[in-house]
Design a protein around this nucleic acid. Structure first.
Lengths: 144, 144
DNA sequence: TCATATGCAACCTAATACGTTACATGATAA
DNA sequence: TTATCATGTAACGTATTAGGTTGCATATGA
């Protein structure tokens, strides 16, 4: 499979939403993300269920933030997406009969679990407002 | 795609090779790994190129370790497999025009890079002899 | 009423480890 | 020398899953 870009895409579009004043339509988001409006709705559905965004049908409708960006972390969005699998690499089988294989699995899982823990902790420390701030700084530096 | 089990499988089979005295045929390895002999050869080819194992054709042939297990780390095998992609999650595009997207990518990459670094460091600290030792201990505990 | 927007089902596509078949090549034993 | 055993490799099929696409129902505002 290709990369799972849902987390990246949602962060991207949420920060744009934080900078706009009107609801963002799936169509406009699709242009930003260079994809299809259905893909946007499908992915955003998880964020709505998690309470991070709201959606309104009809004229003037679209997607809006349900809370300010500084109350949303990268980890929140990862969770709202259903905590998709992080690693492409894994054990051949979950509960093998072979004791050697069990030992190999234990060694690998230990290393991967530690990496996962670190990664999620890091995602939890960065709010979308932090990322937006980083953007503002780069943008300002560009104009100078 | 399903999990990439090549690392797990290679560690498994290498430790078995360390416990045997004769070359291990692809067929026998395939039974151990519950797969096909061609898959074994395909995957082991990388380990041979990296100098971790040797292969001999014909009668009495098969696969042998090129060095003792305490001179091979989990990281060595990961590298010999061509350093396959670790993470399933990634950016939507590598060099986006949108500055917001660049900022998102930078934040994500920073977190993922740190996790990768930790993971590879951990893989580099564990030799196959360490895993074999763990197995021996569990095995001995089982018999008591 | 009509244009606009989400909601959602149903299907196709791409990428890639893994599985499978077929055949060539090399090595050993009879 | 010949049969057997083993690796080497090409070629093609399979399964999984994010993403893409079409179609239609539903709700909202002008």
């Amino acid at each position: 499979m290709q990369m799972d870009a849902r987390l990246s895409r949602m962060l991207h579009v949420l920060i744009h939403m934080g900078r706009g004043d009107r609801p963002l339509t799936s169509k406009d988001a699709a242009v930003m993300l260079q994809t299809n409006a259905v893909v946007v709705r499908r992915t955003m559905a998880g964020l709505r269920e998690a309470g991070h965004v709201t959606s309104v049908k009809g004229h003037g409708g679209g997607w809006s933030l349900a809370k300010p960006l500084d109350e949303i972390t990268m980890l929140d969005i990862y969770r709202a997406l259903g905590e998709p699998r992080l690693f492409l690499i894994g054990p051949a089988s979950e509960n093998p009969d072979c004791l050697v294989e069990r030992e190999v699995n234990a060694s690998l899982e230990s290393a991967f679990d530690e990496a996962r823990e670190l990664l999620l902790a890091r995602l939890g420390k960065v709010s979308l407002a932090d990322i937006a701030r980083g953007f503002e700084e780069r943008f300002a530096a560009l104009g100078s």
